[in-house]
Write a protein that binds this DNA or RNA. Structure first.
Length: 222
DNA sequence: GTCCAGGGCCTAC
DNA sequence: GTAGGCCATGGA
């Protein structure tokens, strides 16, 4: 395990390299939630197409979205893949929101973060990453979002104490950083941006990584 | 044609 | 508690 300042320095270098990412790309908290489900194991380009089609067919509220017949909904989100599963998951999310105050989220917003997280995790098709994305990007809670990119990067940097489970990686970030939702927002987005450009599965060595030669990590970021 | 993408569920050991 | 199969489209 490296010293706690490592993750601070990593953030600074990523921010300098890529600039602010201004996530999440959505028009409303509800759209963040829908996008979080649709982007599961799916490229964002495909999700954008699906959301664009949804916008044309409803005003992106849980009420209106539930009025779309199931088969029609599947057709609209087809570009984002796993469309049958995701249609059911989005509908389940909408029902949950309607039961808890609808689009304005004011009833959910008063809940403590841990309880809010449990509520979303209880929904079928919403696992740790999707729930945390919703907490951070729709509710502004200081929760660090871990994704496959982040785990892969830390494994390659050999800075994980254990095997790199979701909770383990999340704890590492949240113990090393102040509980700042703005920081977590930007950090996760930067990790995704970096990974998309430099740390794909088939790019084991990142020769053009902006971190190369510009940090004292002892080895290049790969 | 093959690999991969901003996961999660279910089933076997 | 965890490894492996499955879900599906679209771009590189």
């Amino acid at each position: 395990m490296r010293d706690p300042a490592f993750l601070h320095r990593l953030y600074e270098v990523l921010l300098e390299s890529y600039g602010p990412q201004s996530w999440w790309p959505a028009d409303s908290p509800f759209e963040v939630m829908v996008g979080a489900v649709l982007t599961q194991n799916t490229a964002w380009n495909s999700v954008e197409r699906a959301i664009s089609q949804l916008r044309k067919n409803c005003d992106m509220t849980p009420e209106r979205l539930l009025l779309i017949p199931e088969e029609k909904l599947e057709e609209l989100i087809r570009p984002s893949g796993y469309f049958r599963q995701k249609a059911a998951r989005v509908r389940g999310l909408c029902r949950f929101l309607l039961e808890n105050g609808g689009k304005d989220l004011s009833r959910l917003a008063v809940l403590p973060t841990s309880e809010l997280r449990e509520r979303f995790l209880a929904l079928k098709g919403i696992g740790p990453e999707t729930a945390d994305s919703i907490l951070l990007y729709a509710f502004g809670r200081p929760v660090f979002v871990v994704d496959a990119y982040t785990v892969r990067l830390l494994e390659r940097l050999d800075i994980l104490p254990g095997k790199g489970s979701y909770g383990e990686v999340q704890d590492l970030f949240m113990r090393s950083l102040p509980p700042d939702a703005g920081l977590f927002n930007e950090y996760h987005a930067l990790l995704v941006t970096h990974a998309k450009e430099r740390c794909r599965k088939k790019a084991p060595l990142c020769k053009t990584c902006p971190l190369n030669g510009r940090c004292d990590f002892g080895r290049s970021l790969i």
